[in-house]
Amino acid sequence: MDKVVASAREAVADVPDGASLAVGGFGLSGVPDVLIQALYERGTTGLRVVSNNCGAMDSGLAVLLAAGRIARVTGSYIGGNKEFARQYLGGELELELIPQGTLAERLRAGGAGIPAFYTPAGVGTLVADGGLPWRYDGAGGVAVASPPKEVREFDGAEYVLERGIRTDFALVRAARGDRHGNLVFAKSARNFNPLAAMAGRVTVAEVERLVEPGEIEPDAVHLPGVFVQRVVALTAEQAADKRIERRTVRS
């Protein structure tokens, strides 16, 4: 039952080139930076990433992106990541851009064993009709476009069929975790982390504070350990390393 792994490097040692990864985080909040850095140092490439965004500033998934290690992204936000936009528009990587709520539900559905579901989000747009550019050809043309999706009517309204997402691995970050893999997330850092963890066949969690089994009250558990296969305890320095994307102060 003890799922603690000695180091982040050991925890991701079996992630092969071309693996699919569900990665938690939103902007700079709740991002498994230590595990991502371990993947970067290992040299893993050709990754197919499922995450809300692909890193912010020069941290998180942006580290792998800048090194050319990511082949495909399924996400909902490019944001101010200019390198992400450059690679996408230049045909260097493939991007499946989907509504944020749909991404969340696709991850949750995959983790819950639900192969597909219907949602009204995207009906009447290219999300349902197909034709969204997934990959450009580097000369301004579209090399790969999204296919049309099934649309059905329920009680007089139309809904589009979306597939649940399962990935080879998942990388997440939690505020607390015990040796059995039960996790607690801090406030907004919960974001996509529980959903990404559910979607991974092998889920690795970096925890800011490792506790013994029983120290987390059952009602306080945000993600049960059944969804987590490996736990990496961060050092105090790693746990405290939390960047701020934009500082706003009173004049």
Results as ranks from 00 to 15, higher is better:
5 V>T: 02
220 A>G: 03
170 A>V: 05
210 L>F: 00
21 L>N: 01
129 D>F: 01
86 R>H: 14
43 G>Y: 02
214 G>T: 08
211 V>H: 08
85 A>K: 02
105 E>S: 07
139 A>K: 13
116 A>V: 04
86 R>S: 15
111 G>P: 10
226 V>M: 14
183 L>H: 14
250 R>A: 06
166 R>I: 09
96 E>I: 11
168 D>T: 08
178 D>R: 04
36 I>Q: 11
59 S>A: 13
84 F>C: 10
48 R>P: 02
80 G>I: 01
89 L>P: 03
81 N>G: 06
150 E>F: 04
163 R>Y: 09
91 G>K: 04
118 Y>F: 15
28 L>M: 14
90 G>K: 07
45 T>Y: 12
71 A>G: 11
88 Y>P: 07
230 R>F: 13
242 K>A: 08
113 G>W: 07
230 R>C: 12
212 E>R: 03
21 L>E: 00
101 G>F: 15
251 S>A: 07
191 N>R: 12
95 L>F: 12
205 A>C: 03
92 E>I: 00
163 R>F: 05
151 V>Q: 10
111 G>F: 09
157 A>S: 15
75 G>W: 10
246 R>H: 12
153 E>Y: 05
90 G>F: 04
20 S>E: 14
206 E>C: 07
46 G>W: 13
221 V>G: 02
205 A>D: 06
48 R>V: 07
24 G>P: 11
2 D>N: 15
138 G>C: 06
25 G>H: 10
235 T>M: 13
